[in-house]
Simulated scan of single mutants.
Amino acid sequence: MPEPVAGRTVAGRTVLIAGATSAAGHTAARTFALAGARVVAVGRDPERLAALSEWAMGISGDLTDEASVARIADEVHSAAGPVDGVLHLVGGWRGGGGLAGQSEADYRFLEQSFTALRLVSRAFDRDLRASDAGRLAIVSSTAVARPLAGAANYAAVKAASEAWTRAVAQGFAKSARDAGEPLRAASVIYRVKALDGLEQTLADAYAGLWGQDAAEINDTAITLSGA
């Protein structure tokens, strides 16, 4: 475990939660707000986002549509300024039935998470690189290390998401190296067997990234598990 950086926390940071209307999103929004962060919650459903109004500014839109993501980024920048962190929670599960049961419809549903990750990380990449402590994190699955035939679609999408997140990490490192500056941004993968019951663990882990040196956590995969 990396040593914490003295005095550095999520307090005062602007953090965007992509796919914020899930149970994990609610927990994260509350945790970050209580820790002193400015929280932006993004999701499709305005009514479900309204339930987060105590903790976060809600912006509705389709994170799988490039024009919608560009509009969301403009709204975020106008209302809250550049972001210091992105927590990607767009996801879902479909599977079963062995390899023959891996339908195209199920794959296209799952693929939305990867599409959203690509669009959101590109839209806010400049913000994260410019921040004195930018932090991007995704939730992946332990299935990536041992994919099963009945979850092949799911594991494939998660593997692609991990590859993209590692590419973001390499971009952060290259940008700092080219500028002759220390690395300040970090891109991290959290792997879980199942997220249910780990919502608070995830929120605390992500908030804690600001207390760790970027060079020690960039391009890392961390498995989260219950007590």
Rank of each mutant, 00 (worst) to 15 (best):
G43K: 02
V188M: 05
A67R: 10
A156F: 14
A35F: 04
T165A: 15
R71S: 09
V120L: 05
T27R: 07
A173T: 15
A185V: 08
T27E: 14
A203S: 08
S140K: 00
Q102I: 02
R71Y: 03
D45F: 07
L198N: 08
A37T: 02
A100N: 05
G180L: 06
G19T: 02
G226R: 11
L224M: 07
L87A: 12
F114T: 01
V39Q: 00
G98C: 06
I59Q: 13
A73T: 13
N153F: 15
V83T: 06
F114N: 06
L87T: 02
D196E: 12
T142K: 01
A105S: 10
S141I: 06
A100W: 03
D45R: 14
G150N: 13
A56E: 01
D178P: 05
P147S: 10
R191L: 04
V5T: 10
G96V: 15
S60W: 04
R94C: 05
V188Y: 05
E181M: 13
G98P: 11
A35N: 07
A194T: 15
A70Q: 13
E162T: 12
G25D: 08
L198P: 11
G171T: 09
L49V: 03
A159E: 14
R118K: 04
T115S: 07
R48P: 01
A100S: 11
T223H: 05
T115Q: 06
R48I: 04
H26G: 12
V188L: 12
I217D: 00
H26I: 04
W93I: 01
A194V: 15
G171K: 09
P46L: 14
D65A: 11
R38P: 03
A155G: 10
E47Y: 07
A137P: 01
V15C: 13
A79P: 00
H26R: 12
G226Y: 00
L119P: 05
I59H: 13
I138S: 04
F172K: 08
I59L: 15
D132I: 06
